[in-house]
């Protein structure tokens, strides 16, 4: 569990204009140029499934989840594959910045993207940007995130 004033190895990524940091141990790998096949009757933030190492990987678009502007070519956006012990899920973000060890601080300021499940009120500054901590396992295990089916589709 992350606590303030402790160093944490993080994976930094950007969703539209928002910057996020997550535990690097919760990430399996970062996929690039994956072909996402749409699935009928799913939420709009769920682009579809992709084929990774013989398995189908569900991909959710955080920008669409956060109702932020998506990139011009979403198909080329990187997909963060979370570690399997958290679940077989992929998160499509706008950009993966890299891994970094950061020290998070509690933030009194109005947090952005608070509706993102697993988001904490901790931020860390890196290269002049503020990164907000998000717990990937909490995110993918949240009921809203799991309910990929379109409302009323069942």
């Amino acid at each position: 569990m992350i606590t303030p004033e402790n160093e944490q190895a993080c994976l930094l990524f950007r969703v539209a204009t928002t910057r996020w940091a997550t535990d690097v141990a919760s990430v399996q790998r970062v996929l690039q140029d994956v072909v996402v096949y749409p699935v009928m009757g799913t939420q709009h933030w769920f682009p579809g499934l992709c084929h990774v190492d013989g398995q189908l990987l569900p991909v959710s678009d955080l920008a669409l989840w956060l109702n932020l502007a998506v990139s011009d070519n979403p198909q080329s956006d990187p997909v963060i594959q979370l570690h399997p012990h958290h679940g077989l899920v992929g998160l499509r973000v706008t950009e993966v910045i890299g891994t970094e060890t950061l020290t998070f601080q509690s933030s009194d300021a109005e947090p952005t993207g608070t509706h993102l499940p697993g988001a904490a009120e901790l931020t860390a500054m890196h290269n002049g940007h503020a990164y907000r901590w998000v717990d990937a396992s909490s995110l993918i295990q949240s009921p809203a995130f799991v309910a990929i089916g379109e409302v009323g589709a069942a």
Binding site: I2, N6, E7, Q8, A9, L11, D23, V24, A25, V27, Q28, R29, V30, H83, V96, G98, T99, T101
Partner: peptide, 22 residues
């Protein structure tokens, strides 16, 4: 990046705890 992630994952799996730079 993935190597870094893998290394971090292995450290987490091995120690069962988060690692620190220190």
């Amino acid at each position: 990046l993935n190597s870094t992630i893998e290394a971090a994952s292995r450290q987490t799996v091995t120690d069962g705890a988060a690692y620190a730079v220190t």
